[in-house]
Amino acid sequence: MPVCYRHPDRETHIRCQRCSRPICPDCMTGASVGFQCPECVREGHKSVRQPKRFTGARVGFRALPVTFSLIGVNVLVWLSIILTGGSGSRIADFLAIRLQGYCLTPDGGFAVPSEVCRASGGTWMPGVDDGAFWQLLTSTFTHVSIIHLAVNMLSLYMLGSFLEPIVGRLRLLVFYLISGLAGSALVVWASVPASSTVGASGAIFGLLGVLVVLFVRAGQSLSPLLPVLLINAGITFFGNGISWQGHLGGFIGGLVVAGIFTSLRADRKAPLQWAALGAFTLALLALIGVRILLF
């Protein structure tokens, strides 16, 4: 694991954008893009040279294994759906999240008790209320449209290529999954019980929330992010067929996990950081459990 060049006892995944040396939060200074170490900050005051722009560094799988792996899983799930019937396939129904199950028949789906469905020769497609808890996460890897997939994967690549070198591989994966779970939690609470929701948008909005918190905690202006935030807010609340619940829930989840990450960053606080992330995950599962009990 990389350690701060000035504090060898501190693990870090952040590097100076000018010299690429690893630096801990106590040593980093926010620059126009990314962070700089104390020596480069002093050098910058004496020089007219512009700091190197952060471009996500290398873009290969070895540099961004988690980002590319997440994209790969999303693409493989989409291919499996396309090869088995497209948006109306049973795989898509099996992976999509919904609170209430429904009966799938050749004439379409309708909400009836599972016993009646099976007696009539239909196929019961379970919801979270029926115990299909896998849908809380599988829905975040599921797409039924090539355009939907392409837009989400491009967004995932752009955010992942920036965040993975900063927060680390494991944390990026955890942030993605917890944000997706947060989006699913709001889906089961605020969506029509029998409606199905799919897409990685909730998890991706979570990564956007992480980026916002990192900018704020580094003392950088949010101006570069404002157009992205406004466009996505407009799509979320005014677009057709968009799950605002998944988007908003994921974004809130990203804000929370990033708040935990930035508040407990020193190596000595790593156990507390993971404990706090675990506690937040349990809180999300508890909220989902309460919704199931109330339904």
Rank of each mutant, 00 (worst) to 15 (best):
T123L: 11
N240S: 09
L137S: 08
G131H: 12
S120K: 06
S221G: 12
C117Y: 12
I252R: 00
R169M: 13
I23P: 03
L64K: 10
N74T: 04
L284S: 04
P8I: 09
L156M: 15
I288Y: 01
F162Q: 02
S89Q: 11
G180L: 01
D129P: 08
L248M: 07
E115D: 15
S47G: 10
A279L: 14
R21T: 12
A92G: 07
F141P: 02
V116P: 01
V77C: 09
S161R: 06
G254D: 03
T262Q: 04
L173R: 11
V151G: 03
P271V: 04
Y157E: 09
C40S: 07
Q17S: 15
E115F: 13
F110D: 04
A258Y: 07
R169Q: 13
I81A: 01
H143Q: 08
G121F: 08
V59I: 14
I178H: 02
L207K: 02
M158N: 08
R118S: 11
N74H: 08
D9C: 09
S155K: 03
L294S: 11
G85E: 08
R21E: 15
L99Q: 05
V48Q: 06
C37W: 02
S223I: 08
A286F: 15
D107Q: 07
A286N: 11
P113N: 15
I178S: 05
N74D: 05
F238G: 00
S69C: 13
R58K: 13
G234C: 06
I71T: 05
T197M: 03
S221E: 07
N152K: 07
K46V: 04
T12N: 13
G249F: 00
I14L: 12
G180S: 09
E39L: 11
V73W: 10
F295Q: 14
Q17M: 14
T138N: 11
W134M: 07
V41M: 14
Q135F: 12
E115H: 12
G250M: 00
V290W: 11
C16L: 06
K269T: 09
G278M: 07
T55K: 08
R169Y: 12
M28E: 12
